[in-house]
Design a protein around this nucleic acid. Structure first.
Lengths: 247, 247
DNA sequence: AAGTGGTCTAGACCACTAC
DNA sequence: TAGTGGTCTAGACCACTTG
């Protein structure tokens, strides 16, 4: 075919044509040349410009829709999106990896462990019926000699019965669960609290020190798997998130 | 064509065929039926199964690659990805929207405003050469009668000269920037700090109260746009993030 | 060497919607 | 109603990688 020889295998071969179209249009948008709300060329115009078929242009523009950079309306055309809510991708690293990133040796200790039926105090933390069997764990993570993070976790033993007999010697409860139990949904709540006496004691900080708390609940197919509250000494820790374009 | 009549316009018409293929494969993966590392059917096999052309299957699998659910290797086939790092999507709402979500009336006040050349103290906060013109703003956001969040912002006037004369009457500086300046990269740091006297005074809280701090820096094409530090009274605020599968 | 995915085409029909 | 995007096809060639 003519188009294939003319543009599809163009000398700048390394990138495919639809990738080049994506990059070109993206460049026009982020540079401000095509500002939010502007109409970008119709598919047919881009076909002429790049000397390719409509499918190729359509594929490229489809990716830009997925990326949230443009919106398309039949008969009207394609328009540069107006940014709506920004979304940051917060990577949830394993605590071992967080400590390793600091260049410090990592270890953890299980400081409390109890198998029990879910009590009323648990029900606010994990999405269970009263009386369901749970495993309650407390765990302290160290970076070098210093406590790095205190963990308070509930595991739903109906969903993960193997946890009852797992010693958690090599892998921390979090790492063990991630490796073993696929999750389909989860929720985070991130906040700041003044360290209560008990937390201050285990973390080796003064009472009242600001701490970053991360509460994470995980479900698989609607069934609660685990709920964990992580407490980091505030001065010693920052969550770092990388932005992604509107999505 | 035979395929088009048989499956393309099937009775379950509402979703397109490639969307249905995406949903089907995604279901097999998240349900665990196709565990991480498993090979999924070849394109040709899926073509037979759905009675469609290779392009349609290819489009669907391409989306799953983008979503990080599968990886594809020529000659070998397509495989369910092994989860790497978990990532939570943290939605960065406009503060007005956050307050509105609480059902409270929103307003903000600009409490300080200065145009100056970047000083050494600024350079740690924003990615600029010394002497570059910046706009320094302090802003207080209210939920009802109570202070909700204190904002301390620097704007690079080389990148956004219009900010110099913008009164920020209708839109807060953050909302104004989001609407006006497309960003290409940004970074967040989330931490906890004990309220210093100045912050405690403006937020109406006791000195030492744990506060959630969010530091956000934004760039466009490598040029710093703005840097903002938001301080929320810790007890009054939680960041909520929703999990997404591996990405 | 064979088989897979990666890409592209030229055309088609349809649905939606702006005019 | 006309024009746009949404979707799909049947075939083709290529590049890569595994066996």
């Amino acid at each position: 075919m003519e188009g294939a020889n003319e543009a599809g295998r163009a000398p700048r071969a390394t990138a495919s044509l639809h990738q080049r179209i994506v990059a070109d249009v993206e460049g026009k948008i982020v540079s401000g040349e095509w500002p939010p709300g502007a109409r970008i060329p119709f598919e047919i115009e881009l076909c002429d410009f790049y000397g390719c078929s409509r499918m190729t242009v359509n594929k490229a523009l489809g990716r830009l829709v997925d990326a949230g950079l443009i919106e398309r309306r039949r008969k009207a055309g394609s328009f540069v999106s107006r940014p709506r809510s920004q979304a940051a991708v917060l990577e949830i690293h394993d605590i071992r990896a967080e400590v390793a990133a600091l260049g410090l040796p990592y270890r953890f200790e299980i400081t409390a462990r109890a198998r029990r039926s879910a009590r009323s105090v648990d029900l606010g933390r994990i999405d269970l019926a009263g009386g369901a069997p749970v495993l309650a764990l407390r765990c302290l993570h160290f970076a070098g000699e210093r406590p790095f993070c205190a963990e308070d976790r509930l595991i739903n033993l109906s969903a993960v019965p193997e946890a009852a007999t797992e010693p958690f010697e090599d892998l921390s409860p979090g790492a063990w669960l991630v490796a073993r139990v696929p999750w389909t949904d989860a929720q985070h709540r991130i906040g700041a609290t003044n360290a209560a006496r008990a937390v201050a004691a285990v973390l080796g900080i003064d009472v009242g020190t600001a701490c970053l708390t991360i509460e994470r609940r995980t479900w698989r197919a609607g069934e609660a798997i685990t709920s964990v509250e992580l407490t980091y000494p505030g001065a010693a820790h920052r969550l770092v998130a990388r932005f992604t374009p509107t999505s």
